[in-house]
Amino acid sequence: MNVLTCNALSKAYGKTPALSGVSLNVESGHIVGLLGPNGSGKTTLIKLANGLLTPDDGTITVCGMRPGKGSHALVSYLPERAVLPEWMSVTQILDFYADFYADFNRDAAQEMIRHLGIEEKQRIRQMSKGTREKVQLIMVMSRQAKLYLLDEPIGGVDPATRDYILSTIISNYNPEAAVVISTHLIADVEKILDDVIFLNRGCVVLENSVDEIRETRGVSVDALFREVFKC
């Protein structure tokens, strides 16, 4: 089943085009990498999928629905920057997610928090950047969503935190749901991806499975990316 579908999707900021005629499908059970250099339209595409932006042209649907109230209940979104209020404690954030999202699995979130050795009374303000990112990812992955949109989940954290984040994504894998991960840290994520979508200047330049790329071209996705986007 298609979880995310874009058809000739376009979006510009004023006169600057961000996406031009993007068509793509993301199926349930797949973990997809949305890869491209800075300014290629990754974040724009993710924001269109969760209704933070509206398309200028073309369509985008989540489980057959235009982004809106119905689709919001199915999409779990990790924004590019930290959004958890700094004054909140872990307990308050758990309450907050449980209030907001009917599909939030509080037990699973608590278990992961405990596993990390974080005290529930600890406030976000008292946490390191890496810990904040882990807590935010735990909240996002503890929802039973149909589509997870993770915008740069591993940017700006150390390699050990990166590994933790990636293994959290794998261990929460659900064959009914799709995960879209935008990043430019390809070498780190490619092993956990089914498929990759290369975006360049708002256009899809390649859509393929990781193993097919490795099989037919004999290079990693990371190497292919460096070749395609050579400056």
Binding site: G29, H30, I31, D163, L166, S167, I170, S171, Y173, K191, I192, L193, D194, V210, D211
Partner: peptide
Amino acid sequence: VRDLATEAGVNPNT
């Protein structure tokens, strides 16, 4: 499959 995938750090479908 999920535990093996997590241990190896790879996609569960793979």
